[in-house]
Design a protein around this nucleic acid. Structure first.
Lengths: 213, 213
DNA sequence: GCATAATCTTGACAGTGTCAAGATTTTATC
DNA sequence: GATAAAATCTTGACACTGTCAAGATTATGC
């Protein structure tokens, strides 16, 4: 993987982020070290300091990339089910869950507090803002279609996000009782959970898995 | 703090857990090291290995203690508002939030996946089971009072927990937009969120802060 | 073209989790 | 009650970590 020719790498910053993402999916959050990242990028162990003030800054960059991918997944789900608010809600939540399940450590590092003070990293904040804005849009559409309760869309979006994020987090932490999970599928449980906040009854049959994600 | 007399400590295991809890609240999750814990307990840096197979095992024990305290807080809220299901729901959620805000790192280590495989620690699993059982009870009471939708109580409990846990997690991660948080108080936002799943309208005025917690 | 900045390397340091070997104390067995 | 075994704790070591300092190399601006 490391192919060094010139003294200057050329695009080390992005190479480090890429290497970080790789190591993250391979060794998990606890296996992500600056030195391993540097090694994978083919530079010495302190080279990253030319581009990131400390490890937190690199983690923030990796988190930002994670948030970007999550946005892509969400936006794809929204776009695929244009003019079908209920489906947008369900598939958006489903995409959120799928991302967390398949890119677990990337999800965790971005949304489970690996970065202590994300506020210090504007790019991260901006991606977070975009994601939230997308959610608010979905919520507004759902409210217009009388699928969600009326009320300030941004407040409602926080509630909806809380519900989905909580469910996904508890799944990842393996906190949900197996007497429950043995009885219903993840998708059924997700739809059941979404049902708690919708004004119409959502059934799994209304949302057959399209199997493309 | 470390007062050593005898070669054998006597109750080192619990002393280590206590020291761990202290360090956790002082230096946070990232500042929690085996060696610091050992030092605080007044023993050498490898003494903990006589009681915990590795750091994860100590973290599991600390997490279990965290879960125990959370249970105490929840049980107190439930008991205080006997025969008032709506209030039990609100104050239970409020206690969950307060615990997370005041014992942030203890909450995080127990419920935000610091332990990789909690399943391997029976005491932890048991505390988790007890907490969930308490929640199921609250949910059943609320369902009987037509405050929550009907449906399997344990599934509904997962949904309710998801909502509260997600909200608390997002608060802790500082992920919730400040354009929202500047407008409403945390308690208002929590009640607004709970309102998404209740069949009756909860207003902050119905639940004045009792200021005892 | 040359000074200056950016980039990268080498070397060091303190702190980490964990293992091995041995010292000390308690417990169990006869 | 002596003694073997087990539990507990210490000392020392190892590899790995994030980070700093000093210097080497390359690119950039005037």
């Amino acid at each position: 993987m490391p192919k060094k020719k010139t003294y200057h790498h050329g695009d080390l910053k992005n190479a480090l982020i890429e290497a970080g993402v790789d190591i993250l999916s391979q060794d998990g959050v606890s296996g992500l070290s600056l030195r391993k990242v540097a090694l994978k990028a083919g530079v010495s162990h302190t080279a990253p300091y030319a581009h990131f003030v400390d490890k937190q800054a690199l983690i923030a960059a990796i988190s930002t990339e994670g948030y970007r991918r999550l946005y892509e997944a969400l936006a794809a789900a929204v776009q695929r089910y244009e003019n079908d608010p209920a489906r947008q809600l369900v598939e958006g939540a489903w995409a959120y869950l799928q991302f967390a399940l398949h890119d677990t450590d990337h999800f965790k590092i971005a949304l489970s507090g690996a970065v202590e003070k994300e506020k210090d990293y504007p790019a991260f904040v901006e991606m977070a803002r975009q994601n939230f804005a997308l959610l608010v849009k979905i919520v507004e559409t759902c409210q217009a279609a009388k699928i969600l309760k009326r009320g300030p869309a941004d407040l409602t979006a926080v509630s909806v996000w809380s519900l989905i994020h909580g469910f996904v987090s508890l799944i990842l932490e393996d906190q949900i009782s197996h007497t429950v999970l043995d009885r219903v599928s993840l998708r059924q449980m997700l739809i059941f959970t979404l049902n708690q906040i919708t004004r119409i009854e959502l059934t799994p049959e209304m949302f057959p898995e399209s199997g493309w994600a």
